[in-house]
Write a protein that binds this DNA or RNA. Structure first.
Lengths: 252, 252
DNA sequence: ACCATTGTATGGTCCGACCATAGCGGGGAC
DNA sequence: GTCCCCGCTATGGTCGGACCATACAATGGT
């Protein structure tokens, strides 16, 4: 009985079922008001839960649920105690929340690996192209350090994975587009752990592959130093494609 | 359930895990366990709050805060009553949550408009290229309908804005990459309201600009029909650039 | 001047009660 | 026999209060 409605409104009613007035949502609205109006800036403290509850005329539980929802979205940060890091404050790093959500998004929606790969290529090509012309000396310097550390013999798989992640993230940030960088970070970061599991599953086959990745990184690094945007783009895409072509995709 | 860690056993210095003993997070972990293990699929109902609290040996408030956080991330959906749509269930559309978060993200981080424009161009070029070869007949048919409705004289600015949004979203979905499409939707959707405000601020200047947008849409549509990926890409980028070149960017 | 104790403000957790909503089912009117 | 009304029940939503845990601040003794 799909589409059957007892209260037939016969046509143009467009009878919007009055949005539920869940109290905690009203609290969320008030908080967002303060943020968008500029009254609350990043790092500012909100009133204590008990006080705000009193001010808004609602229960503390309602305030807590609102805070919890905002915290889950990375908007707020809650801490106990009385110091400067205590109380509920406007969070400084929403990127982390984006990462968390995107990770869940990927897990729940079960995106095809091919889609994720294409998205990575698209994002990182964009970043690499811009990084080739906009990368600052300290960006390049840090990239060089990362490459050297990845060459180090006492660099195990976990460390290599972290360095590899930072290498790509650094390039994304050097690209100068904060939004694109955040999306890149979110995706790369969301795959850090599954990637590590894939590393471990490789056994001794890991070494030659790691060597290949290092070569790719070196070439990309050189292209960035030369300001060769076209090469940086192409090398990045080839690098990512090769990365998944080794059959690791099955591990994801 | 005794899966509880007692006080530090003053021996090995492995005492890393501390401060993250928040009960509601443990509840979140349990729920995510059930989801990733497959025991809970999209649409499934979770136990009633009171029951789950009893089962996990925590208070109902802890369960509620966990649910609230997961709901804020778009993982769960909570509804009252006794029917099939009642109770707490695993949500089906995390895209909406992504949109919400990205909107807040943009507001809080105050991304430069240029960054958002570049991100749009990157995403929609990708979608357009693939849509040119993968768009299905019903996709094209719907796009045609949207174009016709945008031509209609009784199409006001709000309606035009909605149709324009759907036009771009449709192309993104026709591209076949769910992840890219979701990111496109999130960004386009997050700018729907500010864009509408910009429309209204234009006054009578709106009509010639709308006409230009319609022409752009027609050309893109034709490129998609022809399967001309290159043209679709270029037209999309030119369209978006022109879109913001009219000085609307200042309104954002 | 230094350090331990106490104080205080904050979030974290729990309990128990009641309200609001929405489907379900029994019982009466026809 | 059929149909509608009304109360039942399960569910999330809200509330108030109590107590715990934490971390800094103020105090006071040495």
């Amino acid at each position: 009985m799909t589409g059957f409605e007892s209260e037939a409104d016969a046509g143009d009613a467009d009878w919007r079922p009055v949005a539920r007035t869940r109290t905690y949502e009203l609290v969320i609205d008030r908080v967002e008001e303060q943020i968008v109006s500029g009254a609350l800036k990043v790092g500012d403290r909100l009133p204590a839960e008990r006080d705000l509850a009193k001010m808004l005329g609602v229960s503390r539980a309602a305030v807590r649920e609102a805070f919890r929802a905002l915290e889950a979205q990375g908007v707020l940060r809650m801490g106990v105690g009385t110091g400067p890091d205590s109380g509920t404050t406007v969070a400084a790093l929403p990127s982390q929340a984006l990462t968390r959500l995107l990770r869940l998004h990927v897990a729940l929606a079960n995106f095809p690996v091919a889609d994720v790969v294409r998205a990575r290529i698209m994002l990182e090509r964009e970043s690499a192209r811009h990084a080739a012309t906009r990368a600052r000396p300290d960006d390049l310097h840090r990239l060089g350090e990362l490459l050297d550390e990845m060459d180090s013999p006492d660099c195990d798989r976990a460390r290599f994975n972290d360095l590899d992640t930072e290498f790509h993230v650094r390039i994304a940030e050097a690209g100068g587009n904060r939004l694109v960088a955040d999306m890149t970070i979110a995706i790369r970061e969301s795959m850090r752990r599954p990637l590590l599991a894939a590393f471990d599953a490789l056994g001794d086959d890991w070494h030659p592959i790691a060597e290949e990745l290092r070569r790719d990184h070196r070439k990309t690094y050189q292209a960035l130093r030369d300001g060769d945007a076209k090469a940086a783009e192409e090398l990045t895409e080839a690098h990512i494609r090769a990365f998944y072509a080794h059959g690791w995709a099955r591990e994801l």
